[in-house]
Design a protein around this nucleic acid. Structure first.
Lengths: 186, 186, 186, 186
DNA sequence: GATGAATGAGCATTCATTCAT
DNA sequence: AATGAATGAATGCTCATTCAT
């Protein structure tokens, strides 16, 4: 996988299917879903799953890493906006919208104590920096209260995503929660 | 345990010790800590643990149930306050403060898909009602924006507790997060 | 197992049975016999095997270590003999006799490349020293040719045990092989 | 492979490379080296390995069979010598010398319980007869003690090769071990 | 012929639960 | 009541073998 060689068509198909089945399974039933079950749902043998993801953790990582890269990309793209307040809040809106589509697992994984691998940590740190930049700019333009730190911000975002995860007991409205957050950060 | 017979003194001591060891273990290392390990740390045999908590889930429940009763009691007590805004926000402050002391597991359990037993559901519903009452009063006295629903509120609280749980990667300040929430709900 | 506490009677019985079943299975069918199979033959569940021997290697070790200790004891006991030649050759005779009774695994294990644990290495080194002492004395009393080293001696013994292991294709006579070795070492 | 068709040049090269890689891998790391690993080291896919050796055992056999043919040839060639003692001992010397070069696996395989296939058994029986002939002649010319049987001889040789296999813990000197054997057989 | 992806039975190990002491 | 040994289903992972490309 480390070399640049493209996967054979069937291998790529299996890899994609495994990832999407795993994402759904972990999101819906928790991280303890057996790998054999994921393989079964993807219509492959456990050995095939192993060929693509040699350990359970590597499967977690693959799922999370893809997502983290998207988030990082979006945060950076918004860093050049001329409206720093909207840059930050637009980013958060997008985060929430995507999370609902993708049934985000990031914090479920984090809360379950899955070790963040070095490469994930790098992407994660990149995200933190990019969001820190958005926060800074928003604070300098008086769009956000100045006492909030980047750690506060990250925690608020993780809490927001947690509150809105689809399996939640509570049928909260994403728009209202985002409005509360915007108002609170002003 | 279902009958009303009081436990022998040593049995009660064991039960308490098991609960506190289990709470710490689950909070610190996740829900997958083996029961044998919890028994060992509590200085009893696994058979003794079983006598008190016939299944792992019953141990989860016992931990959560105690806590839910406290929360319910506090929410109800504040329902008679003359300052409805402070009643709600004071309740939230207390919730956060207690959660940090008790290393709350409630949402970790919920997010891991642990089934809420009927008796827990009753207590949980009671809490929801009591908080709904606090919210109602606060909204009627214009201390809280009127569009927020009880589901929104519950989700916000779960997100807040999640954001502030001790194992979080982010060193957020509880006071600032509470301030953001207060401002946002106004 | 590390503390001095004696095992409960049933636990000891199971442990003994597991050891003897494992010894026979490994000797007869090689080291790849599944642990489940060993447990089954001993009439216990795999979990019980695990309780006594947490890894497959620890089971190997338990088998070999017992045997190594016996050998060490015998080699040392013969170190004080007044007839150094007979001390060495008597030791070898005993080794062969015991090996046939016990269906020796030592060299099967060694040949399979099982990593020798620290504690086994210590016992093994003790044996080497004790046999080295027997060899020294025998050489000083002119009972054994002086050019043979302790490494040669150990290799010869391992080859002898290998040649005489019960599963061998060849029906060699132990007495004649011992006679050849004695004559050759003179 | 069963038909007489000669292999294409590249196929023959692959076959040779696989055999030599496998010999080294099995000798160095034991028989449990995965076939995928051997294929990888030989620079071919596992499917190619399979085309040449349809089962793992057939690979073992191919390795051993080549070697057995050489041994048989040498034993027979020495059967016509005019010095029967030197014929036998020279054969043994050659056996040991070759074994060290080829990192012999024969007895490792035998001891691991690999079934000797019919074709190997034939060659093996031929070797036994040829060595039996060398032994007979040596005994009739009084170069070897008369009580030693062909089974004893085969066992001694297997033990000797075992004692001198490169992975042995003991750094024995081949010359001294051969000298001891010669002296013992006189 | 070669490649490497897929298969799936098999293995060591884990752990919630049961039960003899 | 407590203990801790035993149980056995389940899980992550391996690897000899097969087969589509």
């Amino acid at each position: 996988m480390a070399d640049g060689r493209p996967l054979r068509a069937d291998a790529r198909r299996n890899r994609e299917r495994l990832l999407s089945v795993a994402r759904a399974a972990f999101a819906g039933e928790g991280l303890s879903v057996p790998l054999d079950e994921i393989a079964r749902r993807a219509g492959v043998g456990p050995g095939t799953l192993y060929r693509h993801f040699p350990t359970k953790e590597s499967l977690f990582e693959a799922i999370v890493h893809d997502r983290l890269r998207q988030i990082l990309h979006d945060a950076r793209a918004r860093g050049t906006s001329t409206d720093p307040g909207e840059a930050l809040f637009g980013f958060i809106d997008g985060l929430v919208a995507e999370a609902r589509l993708k049934q985000d697992l990031i914090d479920a994984l984090a809360s379950a104590g899955v070790d963040v691998s070095p490469s994930m940590a790098v992407t994660g740190a990149g995200i933190r920096d990019a969001i820190g930049d958005l926060l800074d700019r928003a604070q300098r333009s008086d769009a956000v209260r100045p006492d909030v730190t980047i750690d506060d911000m990250m925690a608020l975002l993780s809490g927001l995503l947690f509150a809105l995860r689809p399996q939640s007991r509570y049928k909260a409205d994403a728009g209202r929660l985002l409005a509360v957050l915007r108002a609170g950060l002003r």
